[in-house]
Design a protein around this nucleic acid. Sequence first.
RNA 1: GGCCACGUGGCGGAGUGGUGACGCAGCGGACUGCAAAUCCGCGUACCCCAGUUCAAUUCUGGGCGUGGCCUCCA
Length: 469
Amino acid sequence: MTLSLYNTLTRKKEPFAPIEQSNVRMYVCGPTVYDFAHIGNARPAIVFDVLFRLLRHVYGPEHVTYVRNITDVDDKINARAAERYPGLAPEAGIRKLTEETAAQFHKDIAALGVLPPTHEPRATENIAQMVEIIVALLAKGHAYVAAGEVLFDTSSMADYGQLSKRNLDEQQAGARIEVEAHKKNPGDFVLWKLSEPHEPGWESPWGRGRPGWHIECSAMSARYLGQVFDIHGGGLDLIFPHHENEIAQSRCAHGTPVMANVWMHNGFLQVEGEKMSKSLGNFITINDLLATKMFGGSQWHGRVVRWAMLGSHYRQPIDWTVDRLVQARATLFELSFLRDAPVAGQPHPEVVAALSDDLNTPSAISIIHGLAKSAHRNGDAAAQLKSTLQFMGLYGNETQEELNPGFVARSVDTAAVEGLITARLAARKAKDFKESDRIRDALAAMGITLKDSKDPATGEIVTSWEVAR
RNA sequence: GGCCACGUGGCGGAGUGGUGACGCAGCGGACUGCAAAUCCGCGUACCCCAGUUCAAUUCUGGGCGUGGCCUCCA
C-alpha cells in the first residue's frame, strides 16, 4: 500500500517516500503558551496525531520521530505574564505562566486522544541553537544588523516565496502596515531583537535580546530531525509568513535545497458559521468544551470532540456546531456495545488504506460504519473494529455515562435503577403490562432507556439499560 | 490590489467523465405484549452561466457567495 500526502509545496497529492525508512521524521508547529488552547488549536494536534499513528503503523513505532514544539518566548507571553503576575519578577512570571499553560494544553489534548510526540522541545531551551543559525546567516550574507535587530535579507534568496507562491515584489508593500525604515526590503523579518531590561533576554553576539518567531522552529527541527527531514505540518495560516520564513532561514543557513520534503497544512475552523473571534463572543477553548457547559449547554467528552473533528477531511474548512457534536456523540453511543469485545491487534486494512490516501478520515469513518454492522453479530468483527477504533484514537472503552458528562452531573442511582428493573421484570412475568410500562416511563423520566433481550441459552428475558441520548 | 482555498440531498460528509458512497434525521416493514436495540427496504443533491465531450456534479473559462493569508492568528 502506498501512502500519499498532499504537499503544499507542489499543490499536489504525492506518494510519500521517507528519506530513511528506519527514521521517518515529522515536525509540527506547537502552541504559543500564553492562554487556554482554543478549538482551532485542537485541529492540527488531532490531525497530525492521526498521521503520527499511521506512520507508526506503516514504518513501525520505533522508526518514527515526531517533534512538536512549545513556543514559550513571545511578546504576548510577556504581556500576559506581567498582567497576571504583577508581583513577580518578569522571568518568574513568564515561567509560571508558560508552565501552567503548557500543563493545561497537555491535559486538554490528552483528553482528545492525542499521543505525546517523541520530542517536545521548548524555544527557551534552544536559544543557543538559534544564535548559531543567525551567526551562519550573517556569515553567508543572508542577514544584516539594523536598529538593534538582526534581520533576514529576503532579497538574498533567489527563490524566496516558493511555499506560499508569493512574489514579494508584486505584493503591495505597505498596503496594510507601514514599512519599517530600517528594513532593506519590506518582507525582511526579525531574527533577533534587543530586549529592554524589563523584558526577558539572553546574551548574544548582538547584545541581550530575544529571538524572532520563526527562528525557533528552524533551530529545533534541525536539532531533533536534521537539516532536511520528511514532513512539516501546521495550520493553513502558517504558510505565510511563518513556514516561508522557516524555509528561508534553514535553507540559507544550512545550504540545503529543501528544509522538509512534504509540507502539510490543516484547514481552518469556523464556529456556527462565523469566524471564531473574541469580539464575536464565539471564541471557544478546548477546556470550555470538555469542562463547561458553554457550548450547546453541555459538556463534551474528548472522544466526542475528536470524532467530530475527524468527520471532515483535514484540508477542508470545518464549521464547528453543536449539531456536529451531538451526532458524534450519538455515534459513539452506538459503538459502546464494543465495551465487551476483545481487542484484535491490527487495524482494518481498508481503514488504513483510507487514511493512507492523504488522511481521508471521513472515508475511514464510513468504512467503520460498515464494520459496525457486522460487529453486531460477529465477535471477530467486533474485536477488529475495536482495535481499528483504538488505532485511530476514537475509542477508549468509555461508558455511556462518561461519554455524556453532563448526565453524570445529574448522577444515576445505579441501585435504584436496578431495583426498578427487577420490579418491572416481575410485573412483566405476571403480565401486568400497565405496571411494567409505568416503571419504564419512570425510568425514561430519569433519563434511562431500557433494552430487553433474550438470553440465548435459557430464553429468559434480560434487561439492560443505558443513558438516554 | 496580490496570493490561496471552499460551495454536494433536512443536516454532516466522501468521491467520480457515464449504473445517486456513508452517517444522522425522516418514512415503511420485521422483531417486541408495547417499546428500545437490531435487521430489511425507501426518498430527496452536486451555487449560476457558457465551453469541451457521445456523456460533466466531476475538465476549461467566467460569474456569484463564503473563508483564509498578505500584521509573530491553528
